[in-house]
Amino acid sequence: MLEITDLVHSYGSHRVLGGVSFSVAEGELVSVVGPSGCGKSTLLRSVAGLIRPSGGRITLGGEPVERTPDNLAIVFQDYSRSLFPWMSAANNVALPLRRKGMDRRRRREAAMTALEQVGLADAGGKFPWEMSGGMQQRVSIARALAYRPSLLLMDEPFGSVDAQTREDLEDLVLNVCAHHGITILLITHDIDESVYVGDRVIVLTRSPTRVAADLEIGLGRSRDQIATRQLDAFVRLRAEVGRLVRGGHTTTPASVLEKH
């Protein structure tokens, strides 16, 4: 459903993306991990149509991405700058639904349902700044859910919350992906997290960034913060991703090295 082919981008003379190619299938949760400063955000912003990459091709559902595609939602890392502080949580969730042609009552209903799904049934009237960071990020996720996107982009969505909240949110995202069949592309710098939430992990190299490896995780959809992390397969995969992020080479036969 999402195809990225030879994506290249430079800021001035500095080349950030050096030819990135991978694809995401319908209903998949793909995490993208890489060393800091490797152009993860540039990649995501290109997919969202927020910047025009210097070269390469991105198609979404067969259509080339030239401007911001319809049916695409995003959850940013910095929730405080993404939610509108002058609107209640419910209004934040409901506002984007106007373009879907829903009337006020149906927008309201859809917003309440989405808030329920992220465990914030009672928080619709609160303002973002009256909430904890974790709750705000839940509102962002609810906003994306209510929008019913075909592709959900998440940019370090759990980078600014504490460890406990982070685990809760990871499980929330897994849950959402399983129950709503949304395709998710999640960007993170956290190796553990990339393996824990992903159906597949795309490992990026340092800039100019290429795909170092495209790993099938194969842990199934039902995961548990403690049990899953104790599995041998998880530990092995995590070590594997860790080596790759640090610039080492893959040892697992299942991984697919990018052709240079």
Binding site: A48, T68, I74, R81, S82, F84, L95, P96, R99
Partner: peptide, 13 residues
């Protein structure tokens, strides 16, 4: 900027 980008992503008129 992120508010404007959010508006753009969610297709605000």
């Amino acid at each position: 900027r992120q508010h404007l980008e959010t508006a753009r992503i969610f297709g605000f008129s």
